[in-house]
């Protein structure tokens, strides 16, 4: 079984490294057209939101509404304090509290 797994790991290593490394190695020294630069600068907000939203709405565990509810105080703290640490602490506390109240 281990032999099969090392074959799988080898393949996975190649297909995870290629998309991670190729753009950085090819594009870092190049002067890109302004439109492409603007497009690339918008990848961060678009992709972070694309990662976040399914986490809030489609949860597989027993408490589907908890992440959505907890995201409200988390958004507010992020907005007001602009502190990443406080945002994460409030988010964790909100989820723990909601599950405690819900008895889950």
């Amino acid at each position: 079984m281990d032999k099969t797994w090392w074959f799988i790991i080898g393949g996975m290593t190649v297909v995870t490294l290629l998309p991670r490394l190729t753009p950085i190695l090819l594009l870092s020294d190049r002067r890109l057209p302004p439109v492409i630069q603007r497009w690339l600068s918008l990848i961060a907000p678009a992709i972070l939101s694309a990662l976040l939203l399914p986490e809030l709405f489609f949860v597989r565990d027993a408490t589907p509404v908890v992440p959505l509810l907890a995201s409200v105080p988390t958004f507010l703290v992020a907005w007001w304090t602009k502190s990443l640490f406080k945002t994460v602490v409030v988010g964790i506390a909100a989820v723990a509290l909601l599950r405690l109240i819900g008895g889950l």
Partner: peptide, 11 residues
């Protein structure tokens, strides 16, 4: 919820 909260705080 630590990672979703972090994404909120960075987004």
């Amino acid at each position: 919820f630590a990672l979703p909260a972090m994404f909120i705080g960075l987004l």
